[in-house]
Write a protein that binds this DNA or RNA. Sequence first.
DNA 1: ACTAGGTCCTGGTTGC
DNA 2: TGCAACCAGGACCTAG
Length: 278
Amino acid sequence: MPELPEVETIVRGLSKTLKGDQVTQVQVLRKDSIAYPDTPEEFAKMLKGRTFQTFDRRGKYMLLGLDAGAGLGVHLRMSGRLLVRSPKQKDDHSFLRVRMKLASGRELHYEDMRVFGRLWFVPKTLSFDEVIPALQNLGVEPINGNLTGAILKELFARKTQAVKSALLDQTLISGVGNIYADEALFLSGIRPLTRACDITGKKLNLLAEQIDQVLCSAIKAGGSTLRDYTDSDGVNGNYQNQAWVYGRKGEECRVCGKAIERVKIAGRSAHFCTKCQK
DNA sequence: ACTAGGTCCTGGTTGC
DNA sequence: TGCAACCAGGACCTAG
């Protein structure tokens, strides 16, 4: 499940390999994967002939700028992948949802087992924000020092929900998902069920710092190794091997040795250490 | 205004 | 061994 670091890694990869390449043919194999325009035919027709120029990320959204003022938005959700493939490669295409043939002779594949991810074509007459309304409501980018304890204090001031749920709310903070939320809470010594508004200033400073830290470390490591995640070259990242709590239910805490607990919070699993997190 | 829960989707896991 | 039921999870929608 790609979160901010994985999306950032993919965008950086694509900017190196895809810049200047042109889409010569578009094949939509699963119409559900297209969020805009309404029909796959329109999507294919509009995207055909466009050239990739810029590569940006906002939260977990990829924003790819095309020539003639157009754009392509991509959200991978759970299991989406955006991969540059050589047509000679004998890959498993069972999850291929959109195939984009390129002038370079390569193919850009959108693969997505669970079909939760979406692609948006952004015509020159509209902005990314207009085509993908959720972009307008995204919260603060939590890396590069953007997120501070003071900001968290303001965001959490009236939030009675569990801090874990607040961290996953993309309108508060954009890009944090289940893995890094659990990891940042562990590193901050905060239990995921703590009400967001009950966390003190000092802890909020630490939490802001750890969120930034854990995301940047993952970017440096090339993103997480997850069930469904690979970068744009199809190479696995390697962060997961270092996970403190995520996916480690019943295993020993790397700090104190106590068994890692897992609970459900608002429908999401949360992993934590009862001794290290108070 | 805010929060919790259901929904989508499919391969993997669990349980009978 | 075989098969059905259940599970994971991000964002969106609805209900309370």
